[in-house]
Computed example of a mutant assay.
Amino acid sequence: MHTDLSAHLHTPACNKLIEELQACHKNNGFGKFLGVCNSIDDKVVKCLKKERIARSAANRAKARERQAKYKEQLLQGEAN
């Protein structure tokens, strides 16, 4: 099961793979259950994982900046 595959949530590279997977599923009605589209699906999973890892790293960096800012404000407040 994949996360939401809406185009606005993903990079152009992942969107291309998602479109290929959806086309494969559409063109292989029964074959999709037999693994015809598994190679494309594996590529989609890897791309989505790469996006998730990058998004997590960006969120951690933002959190560190925010925590440093609040800590600085707290220390300035104690000094006054």
Rank of each mutant, 00 (worst) to 15 (best):
K16R: 14
S6W: 04
I53Q: 07
K62H: 13
R66T: 07
A58Y: 09
Q22N: 10
K69M: 09
E19N: 11
G35M: 02
G29F: 02
C37V: 05
A23T: 10
L21D: 05
A61F: 05
R64W: 04
E20A: 10
K46G: 03
A57Q: 12
F30K: 07
K49D: 09
A54R: 13
Y70P: 00
N80S: 12
Q76D: 11
K32C: 05
C24S: 05
D41L: 06
L34I: 03
S56D: 14
C24V: 03
L75Q: 14
I53C: 01
C37N: 06
C37M: 05
C14Y: 08
K32H: 04
E19A: 15
G35E: 01
C47F: 05
L9N: 13
Q22G: 00
A54N: 09
V36D: 03
S6C: 07
K69C: 03
A68W: 04
K62A: 11
L9W: 01
N59W: 00
C14M: 06
A79Q: 07
K62C: 07
K69Y: 09
E20C: 03
C14G: 07
K71G: 06
A7C: 06
R64P: 01
K69S: 08
E20R: 11
C47I: 03
D42C: 03
Q76C: 03
Q76T: 05
C24M: 01
K32Q: 11
A57N: 11
S39I: 00
D4M: 07
H10D: 08
E19G: 06
T3S: 15
L5R: 13
R64D: 10
E72C: 06
D4Q: 13
R55I: 07
K43S: 06
K62I: 06
I40C: 08
K71S: 12
K62N: 11
C37I: 02
I40G: 10
K32P: 02
G77S: 13
N80G: 05
V44L: 03
C37R: 05
E51I: 03
T11R: 10
A63P: 00
D41Y: 02
D4N: 15
H25Y: 12
D41I: 01
F33I: 02
N27H: 06
R64T: 12
C14Q: 04
K69W: 10
K49M: 11
C47L: 08
E19M: 07
T3A: 15
F30I: 14
K50E: 09
C14A: 15
E78Y: 04
D41K: 12
P12R: 13
A68P: 00
A54D: 10
D41Q: 12
E51W: 02
V44S: 04
C37W: 02
E72N: 12
N38G: 01
Q73I: 08
D42A: 13
K50T: 09
E20S: 12
A7H: 15
N59G: 02
I18Y: 04
I18D: 02
K49W: 05
S39C: 00
